[in-house]
Simulated scan of single mutants.
Amino acid sequence: MRKLANILAVTLLIALVSPVFAEDAKPFADATEINLLDLLPPPPADDSAQTRAELGEILTLQVTRTPEEAALATADDAEEIWRFANVINNPKFTKENLPKFSAFFDRIVATEGAVIDPAKKFWKRPRPYLYSDLVKPIVELSKSGAYPSGHTTLGTVMGIVLSNMVPEQKAAIMTRAWEYGHNRMVAGVHYATDIEAGRISGTVISQTIMTHDDFKAEFEAAKSELRTVLGLTHA
C-alpha cells in the first residue's frame, strides 16, 4: 500500500511540474462561442470566375516567387509564435526562456483549431492543388478544407496579441502577421479569399477572447515575462 502511495505521489508531482504542450492546451474559446458560419460568407464556388481568378494568382506567385520567398513560406508552415522571432530580433526570444509565454500561446494555437476546424469541415472548399494539378505546393499537404485559412487566422491572432505585449513594434509585428498569411498563397495551399476570411476570423477571435478573465490573467503574466526577459520596460 505504501509503495502504491509513493507511486501515486510521484505521478502527481510529475504532472504538476511537467510543462503543458500544445496538444494539451485548453482553448480560450471554441466554435460554440464563435460560430464562423454566422460571421463569414461562403467561399466562392469551385466553378466560379472568382475561383479561377484566384487560381491564376496562385500560379503567378508560383512562377515569380524567389528562392528566399519560397524558403520563408515553407518555414511558415509551422504554427507557432516563434515564427515572429525575426521581428522580435532578440536571442532570448525562445521557448526555453519564456515558459509562461510559450504555454499562453499554446492556448492561442488550440483556440484557432477549436474555432476554425468546424467551419472548414462545413464548407469543404478544395485546396488549390486539388482543383488544378498545375499548382505545385511547397509545404506538407493538408486534408482539411481551404476556407478559411487556419494559418492565417492563427497568424492574425498571434500578431494582434503579441503587438499588444510589445506595442513598440506593433507595425512590424502586424506586417509579419499579414506576411504569414500571404505565404499560404506563396506555398500554393490557399486562395486569396481563404486568407481574407482567416484575417477576419483572427480579428474576431482576438476581440472575443480578450474579454475572458482567464485570457486576461494569462496575458498579463506572459507579457510581464516576455518584457522582463527581453529587457523591455514594463508598460
Results as ranks from 00 to 15, higher is better:
Arg127Ala: 09
Leu98Tyr: 10
Pro27Trp: 00
Met210Thr: 13
Ala78Gly: 05
Ser18Ala: 15
Ala29Val: 15
Asp24Glu: 15
Arg65Gln: 12
Gly159Asn: 03
Met165Arg: 00
Ser48Arg: 01
Val17Ala: 14
Pro148Gln: 09
Lys143Ile: 10
Val157His: 06
Asp106Trp: 12
Ala171Cys: 01
Ile205Trp: 01
Glu225Ile: 09
Glu33Asp: 15
Pro42His: 12
Asn97Tyr: 03
Phe122Asn: 12
Val115Ile: 10
Lys95His: 07
Leu4Trp: 11
Tyr131Asp: 09
Asp133Val: 06
Ser149Ala: 06
His212Met: 08
His190Pro: 15
Asn89Ser: 12
Ala73Thr: 04
Leu16Met: 15
Leu13Met: 14
Leu98Arg: 07
Phe105Arg: 04
Glu33Ala: 14
Glu79Cys: 05
Tyr147Val: 07
Gln62Thr: 02
Thr228Leu: 02
Asn35Asp: 14
Lys95Pro: 06
Glu79Ala: 10
Leu130Trp: 05
Leu154His: 08
Val166Cys: 01
Pro126Ser: 03
Phe104Leu: 05
Thr175His: 05
Gln169Ile: 03
Ala172Ser: 10
Ser48Tyr: 01
Arg52Ser: 13
Leu154Asp: 02
Arg125Tyr: 06
Thr152Phe: 11
Thr64Asn: 11
Trp123Asn: 05
Lys92Pro: 03
Ala235Glu: 13
Pro27Cys: 03
His182Lys: 10
Val109Ile: 13
Ala171Lys: 02
Ala75Phe: 13
Lys216Cys: 02
Trp178His: 14
Ala177Gln: 04
Ser102Asn: 15
Ile195Thr: 12
Gly159Val: 10
Thr60Phe: 07
Ser48Asp: 00
Ile108Cys: 00
Gly181Cys: 01
Gln50His: 09
Thr193Arg: 06
Ile200Leu: 07
Met1Gly: 11
Ala187Phe: 02
Ile195Pro: 00
Asp76Ala: 02
Ala187Gly: 09
Ala45Leu: 12
Ser224Thr: 15
Leu39Cys: 08
Ala197Ser: 11
Pro128Glu: 02
Lys124Cys: 04
Asp213Gly: 05
Thr203Asn: 15
Asp77Cys: 05
Val229Asn: 04
Pro137Thr: 08
Leu72Val: 14
Ile209Pro: 00
Val204Tyr: 12
Glu218His: 07
Ser206Trp: 02
Thr111Arg: 14
Glu218Trp: 02
Glu179Pro: 01
Ala103Val: 12
Pro118Trp: 06
Ile173Met: 08
Ile58Val: 15
Leu232His: 05
Leu230Phe: 01
Ala235Cys: 04
Ala221Leu: 11
Leu8Lys: 09
